[in-house]
Design a protein around this nucleic acid. Structure first.
Length: 389
DNA sequence: TCGTTCACG
DNA sequence: ACGTACGTGAACGAT
């Protein structure tokens, strides 16, 4: 992947940069008008002074150095009816896209190959994941439409198409496997929507009676479980009281007792053995659990529950990558693996071979490791990364 | 070099 | 009384 690199469309990036520049200038003017002065919007101290001293907006949250101006704070201020926070949020979003991606990536095209060659670091992340740097191609925007459109600038070589394949819910499937929880495993074997199933379970309703809000809450709880759950953080995320969050967590583990037992066992292992391990036997040592500091110890416990799940998913995709690389070597039709983004692989394949290659990739990814529940892969293809969705 | 912020899974 | 979800990397401003 490092050697092959990936191509971009320089004209797309140039046009996007100019458009963002124009949009930013307009927002900037509005911000200065609201503030009654010009200042550096990118400077946290200067922005702090304008928001919390000059305009006397309420302080929502503090950092070590003063009032926080992060997105959650600005969103709350916007809800209170203030005009400037929304403008700052829009400015931040576009400035991030322009400086981190649109203006930076074209400068990193290697003149010899005409492509961008990221590094995929294999001994950085504590869980066994890869990381990507110089540039990081594992954090190209996708969550907002304006951000996702940057993926239109990543393009296959002439005569080729992109093929992307991503594991569906791999971490929750790994958790179902590791815990052996019957209810969880049954949900995955039925091929159903796992967040909907979880909602039905936690809220004690029929599958057909699960509302969008219930499903969203269940999804958040599922992620919280993988991360090492805490009532306070969950309440923040759900926008509920801490008490309600506690009730959700209690209900969740009551219905999934083997999940709770498994997670508790990992914490116990960290205390007793000093480490936890993944499916393939990768260890993460957790010295934090020996700390006298409560917060550090808590962090250690969350790491102990998260690392086997995140790390086992990393084991599985690495095995798939090796299998696929071998298979592509055999075929020798020019298909190349370009990127790995934790649960997704991106390839470029000769246009005529897309369907066959998609099948090959799906089989190898789904068959990389046999769990107690099936592994599922979703695929896409297109003339840009954006089109692969 | 550090702190803050924000992009991703 | 305190602080508060896992794993990363990059840009920017301040020091």
């Amino acid at each position: 992947m490092e050697q092959v690199g990936i191509a971009i469309d320089p004209a797309f990036f140039e046009e996007t940069s100019q458009k963002l520049e124009r949009d930013l200038r307009l927002i900037e003017e509005d911000i200065y008008k609201e503030a009654g002065e010009e200042f550096n919007i990118n400077s946290t101290p200067q922005l702090r002074e304008v928001l919390f001293e000059k305009l006397e907006l309420p302080v929502i949250k503090k950092t070590k150095t003063g009032p926080s101006t992060d997105a959650s704070v600005l969103e709350e201020l916007a809800e209170q009816g203030h005009r400037i926070p929304t403008l700052i949020l829009e400015y931040r979003q576009l400035d991030k896209l322009k400086s981190t991606y649109v203006d930076a990536l074209p400068q990193l095209v290697n003149p010899d190959t005409g492509r961008i060659h990221s590094s995929f670091n294999q001994a950085v992340a504590a869980t066994g994941r890869l990381s990507s740097s110089d540039p990081n191609l594992q954090n190209i925007p996708i969550r907002t439409e304006v951000g996702a459109e940057l993926r239109k600038g990543f393009v296959p070589a002439d005569g080729f198409r992109f093929v992307s394949a991503d594991y569906s819910q791999i971490e929750l499937r790994v958790l179902a496997h590791l815990s052996g929880d019957e209810t969880f495993m049954r949900a995955f074997r039925s091929g159903a929507d796992i967040h909907r199933e979880t909602a039905a379970l936690v809220f004690e309703v029929d599958l057909d009676d699960v509302t969008a809000d219930m499903r969203a809450a269940a999804k958040t709880i599922n992620f919280a479980t993988i991360y090492g759950i805490g009532p306070y953080a969950l309440s923040k995320q759900l926008g509920t009281s801490v008490q309600e969050a506690k009730t959700f967590i209690e209900s969740y583990f009551e219905r999934l007792p083997d999940v709770r037992q498994y997670l508790d066992r990992q914490i116990e292992r960290a205390y007793e053995e000093g480490y936890v391990e993944t499916l393939a036997g990768r260890r993460r040592y957790i010295p934090e659990v020996k700390s006298k500091n409560y917060n550090i110890r808590q962090f250690g416990e969350r790491a102990a529950t998260n690392a086997p799940v995140q790390g086992s998913a990393a084991d599985i995709i690495k095995i798939a990558m090796i299998d696929i690389h071998d298979a592509l070597d055999q075929r020798d039709d020019g298909t190349r693996m370009l990127l790995q983004v934790h649960d997704e692989l991106l390839f470029e394949a000769p246009a005529a071979a897309v369907d066959e290659i998609t099948g090959l990739i799906t089989e190898r990814m789904e068959g990389a490791f046999e769990l107690a529940v099936p592994l599922r892969v979703e695929t896409g293809s297109g003339a840009s990364w954006y089109e692969c969705k």
